[in-house]
Amino acid sequence: MKKLVLCLPLLALAGCAAVQPWERDVLARPDMSLDNAPLDAAIDDHIYFSKEASSGGRGFGGGGCGCN
């Protein structure tokens, strides 16, 4: 039982109750895509890279500028 309790969050994470292909109506919408505004994201990354000490996370670290 203890093992089961420990596994529950992992089970939830692994989506062990799989969403079937015919149930993907919502997930297939463009606004549900994780990268639905790539240019906005690239601009944000560039601005924050040049003003803050952190970068990357969603994708590679970014950078490639002197950004003074």
Binding site: A12, L13, A14, G15, V19, R24, D25, L27, L34
Partner: peptide, 10 residues
Amino acid sequence: TQVLNRTTVL
């Protein structure tokens, strides 16, 4: 990346 349910992705 994990589909959590019909309306949520992580």
